[in-house]
Amino acid sequence: MLELLDYDFMRRALLAALLVGCAAPLVGAFLVQRGLSLVGDGLGHVAFAGVAIGVLTGTQPVWTALLAAVAAAVVIELVRARGRTSGDVALAVMFYGGIAFGVVVLSATTAGSGALTSYLFGAITTTTQSDIVAFAVLAVAVVTLTWVLRPRLFAVANDPEYARASGLPVLGLNITLAVLTAVTVVVSMRVVGLLLISALMIVPNAAAQLLARSFRGMMLLAAAIGVACSLGGVAASYALSTPSGGTIVLLAIGMFVACAVGDALRRRLGARHRPAELHDHEHGPDCGHDAVPHDDHLDYVHDGHRHAHHGDHYDEHSDHASVADAPERPAGRAVQ
């Protein structure tokens, strides 16, 4: 497998995959959070029109695509900020107009259908040296900015009303996220293709979501999954002579399924714990029950047995010799 690295084009491909695999899920985390999982798809459509213009005018398609996608991203946020229902239809027109324009114009140029599919579905091994430099700069900028702005992007996506009330620049941050998304789409188009880029932003997050217990954890895990799938996908596409984009996305979906199965198994095992009886008060500093530290949490001594928070209910944590336990209850360890 290491002979992959002997080829210049493979080294470039793997580097591009590494960058995209990291950047796309990080940006995608906020899209998932905002319920905008498909927006990357729409931006991909518009970027395609930019590619066509680039080919038509003899400009680098990367830059015209970037321009088109960023402009569309800003328009999307402004339309959303106005909150009109007609805005949804306007965005649909923009997205489909973009891809239709791209297909028609590209087929009329000398680029031919090979170029068309390479942009739509990715053709990573055709990446040139200058492409790679541009991608690297853009991807590093996206990753850095996304990570640095993470707490703010999180707060704005989590509760825009509160964010506005506390004085955060909500529209500015949303436009920033949209532009980061647009840049990611364009950086990724040679690797996974404009039709599949949204998958690389969303699917690793969907998988990470099943395992993570914090937003930060989800982002890091999604980036790790994204990198693993991108590198694995590029290597596999070389070995199997398959298109890189589809291979990467299929790997990511495989990861998602594996995580879902793992999560289901964990839940099955987790179900072995013993919930406490229902009571209509909340244990806490004011409940009047003694709190006893237990590993990383507090148990509350309730009528001689211990209650511990578990999700939205309490568990019996009764395997402690220090507390008189109801003898008829079998001791069972709560699975945390």
């Binding site: 959070q33 964010a163 506390s166 979501q209 993570a212 930060r216």
Partner: peptide, 17 residues
């Protein structure tokens, strides 16, 4: 947080921004 995982601390931290 209806769409993604988030800890109590992550939500409360927004108050410091």
């Amino acid at each position: 947080s209806g769409t993604v995982a988030a800890t109590v601390t992550e939500i409360v931290a927004a108050g410091r921004l």
